[in-house]
Amino acid sequence: MNYFNQGFRSVLPIISGIIPFGAVMGSAFSEAQLSFFQALLMNTTVYAGAAQLATVELMKMNAAVFVVLATGLIINMRFLLYSAAMSPYLKDASPLIKFLCAFTLTDQSYAAMTANQDKFHTNTEATHFYLGTAACMMLTWHASVMAGFIFGNFAPASLNLDFAIPLSFVALLVPTMKRRGHQVVAIFSALASLVFYGLPLRTGLIVTSLLSTGLSWMIIQMRRKT
């Protein structure tokens, strides 16, 4: 089986969490009285669920452009770290492949990629696998958002399907925690995210990510010395 297909299949279990999130996003577009074209435009070009949800709410309140942009981009700032982590795999890729990989970078596709990184022998295999995950994510996300826009939030609340998103992150995180250092950083990140949750503009996520990355760097330095 080729790596694109493997990547595509690796994300299939996760889509149970993406569909309800997409439906919520679609119904938020609808409640904001955006046209189908506007919803489609924002969804296909920004392609970042959490940022879209937050910024549509702000636009509904007619918030200043600076506030809307700052909120959306701060939420998306974690992609900078994913982009850095993806860069070694894409060193020799064509500009088109680099653009496609960058444009389709999401939490889930990056997580699926890292959870399976031991399977790749070359950067090309890794890239094909990643593009498979990205294709599955894009198809699912756009279809569920547009369905949510047309039919409203169709996911039954009693099934708690939105909870599948944190569960899928747990399932994708655990295989990457190979050493004690990774576990220490994960526990630190979990606790810090609770402490910094109340920070404005959702900067808690960025503060936690930076502190956790700093701790990771310290662990690496200590490991090198011993």
Partner: peptide
């Protein structure tokens, strides 16, 4: 090599911060 090693920590640094507030609160 050090920076490549740092990249292996990114899921541990970010994913718990995405998961925890959404479930704990």
């Amino acid at each position: 090599i050090k920076v490549k090693e740092l990249f292996t920590f990114i899921p541990a640094a970010i994913f718990p911060a995405l998961i925890m507030p959404a479930t704990f609160f």
